[in-house]
Design a protein around this nucleic acid. Structure first.
Lengths: 190, 190
DNA sequence: TTAAAATGATAACATTTGTTAACGCATACA
DNA sequence: TGTATGCGTTAACAAATGTTATCATTTTAA
């Protein structure tokens, strides 16, 4: 409970009363490695806050192949946020890769926060901006850097990722095959 | 002046007084095709609203090659938003591709809006969410669709783009060479 | 403890994509 | 009007990346 409060306090001013009411309807859940927090086809009705653990975001293409789109770490919010905002069925799997504890914030709480917390809208803005910057950076790197450069810079975005995630998932995140990543590493001259 | 008011009113409630004060320090500017609205290396101090025209967002890689990262159309906000938020030097060129008229909203106005407009933070949240959804969609497509599929779906995101932008810029946006796009189109069997 | 499964490296080969150059056509402009 | 420039297509070839298979090692689970 403390970690989410800390993170929110680092972004906005909120009274204890606001904070407690905001979190009142949240619940804690724990997932084992490879367990699934959310599946595609369902309208997302909650936002997750990861207190510890690691969540992989996956999309499946038409052929059924799965692609790792994102890794979400402790002290971050994660959701199929587009689906949540648009109230459309999600497209992502959210999968724990480690034993992972989350707070589940239902839509009701988010909406309560927007309407009733002094800085609720600001909190929403800052979270959206955080992910905007993450996405923007990612797209910059995609256009302006090679896969190997992106590989070498990965740990800046996901600290310690190489000790927490198998390499083939990293290859998937980079948009290349595991075989190719292995080759690139071999020729990694820096 | 009317178009930006309409767009803002479609997102939030705002009194005439709020709206007029918010826009008080904005100015109108007009750019000819290929003129540049913003360059990398400078901390972005304003947000643009395109009342008509079309702006291309470009990033240059280490080799100096330019990549088209985005097209911004009329009635949209555009900026090097990451740089604006983080107060860091921008990385993008913003280039008009048609005769383009914009409102330039200085940082001062944005901050005034956050502090003084009833729904200022909400406006910021909705704009950040809009671009979040755009980015998210884009990344989904990047992983789950082929370049040809992305080409065929382009006009959904950028209406009439094929009549407004030369094909080699579209190829650049898709992350492929003009020669390759030409080949793909030739084999486009649907 | 042991057997099965997952992981990562590597090789051989196939496919995709990039590079360079040439050409025809349209457009801009002097 | 004529000339230069930009655009899109095509072809030939090169480079990058994917595919499939094999192997050794580590991890997982019975």
């Amino acid at each position: 409970m403390e970690s989410i409060k800390q993170v929110i306090h680092s972004m906005i001013q909120a009274s204890d009363r606001e904070m407690n009411q905001f979190l009142e309807d949240s619940r804690v859940a724990t997932y084992q490695p490879y367990e699934v927090l959310a599946e595609p086809g369902v309208i997302p009705e909650s936002i997750f806050f990861i207190s510890h653990g690691l969540v992989r975001v996956i999309i499946a293409d038409q052929a059924g192949d799965e692609h790792t789109i994102h890794f979400a770490l402790e002290n971050q919010f994660i959701a199929d946020y587009s689906g949540f905002i648009l109230r459309q069925p999600g497209l992502y799997y959210l999968q724990a890769l480690e034993e992972t504890q989350v707070f589940i914030l239902p839509r009701k709480s988010i909406e309560w926060g927007y309407s009733n917390m002094q800085e609720g809208q600001k909190l929403g803005r800052l979270i959206a901006e955080f992910y905007f910057i993450y996405h923007d950076n990612r797209i910059k790197n995609l256009y302006a850097r090679t896969p190997l450069e992106r590989y070498n810079a990965l740990a800046e975005v996901f600290p310690n990722i190489h000790n927490r995630v198998p390499q083939h998932m990293i290859a998937s995140y980079l948009g290349i095959t595991p075989v190719h990543l292995s080759r690139l590493k071999k020729n990694n001259r820096y």
